[in-house]
Amino acid sequence: MRDSLRLVIVLTLVAALSGGILAYTWDKITPIIDANNAAALADSILEVMPGAVSYEIWTAEAASSVDADATASGTADADTTASGTADAGAAATGTVDADATASGTVDADAATSGTVDADTTASGTVDTAAAATGAADADATASGTADADATASGSVDGTSGSSLVATIHEIYRGLDANGKTAAVAFVVDANGYGGTIRMIVGVEPAARKLTQIKVLEHAETPGLGARITEPAFLRQFENKSIDDAFAAKQDVDAIAGATVSTIAVASTIKSALTEVETELRAGGAW
């Protein structure tokens, strides 16, 4: 009994000490790490937009009225790249997906303990995660019955099977000395080989070309996929026309042994560019 008590005490002591030391270090060091990261991001933003002297965060809400509200114990995804109004207010316990990239009307009504609306009026193509037929479905799986109808009077693209989904985080507008838009930069996540690759991409909208790209975070294999951070790889995107194909081994040199990482970077940039262009055009900032 005394022996086992001693074991418990020693283990508890060691664990408490380790925990205490770690908590103290964490407490002291996180602000420094956060400050470092923020400074690094700010540097990167200006770095990929050589023409800009300052930048501001470009918000969709400010330019057009694109809303995505989730007022429930459910999740509401509303990927809208439309020049219109898109509301996805989910007042129900359920999951609501409404991907609308435009032309037509997409309605998603959930007749449960709440209403779900996803209205989009614009011109372009409609991208739905659900069905590639004429009708787009937005499913609301709720604690009850939920109906979601979507009518799209346009061309519907059912290309959602692709694993390469660009997740665009922030869009920054780079301003030159006169306060005019010199360039645009955006932070985007790609699905790499070892995890998420977070990049910042600079674009010159007027010239329709990239300025620079930079990898912010990644978890690719050292020596192989990790070479996406090397200048030799990144330089080929400088001044690249955004209308290029961005296809690995064609207009983008693939890193030997790291084709997955190369494709992830190239195709994510391509699809993100399309989305960003649509969104900025809608907001009149392109």
Binding site: A15, T25, I29
Partner: peptide, 19 residues
Amino acid sequence: CFIMIIATFTTIIDMVLAA
């Protein structure tokens, strides 16, 4: 006990280097 000590030092070096 050894693992806890090793993990503590590893985490500390990780955080210190990052900062």
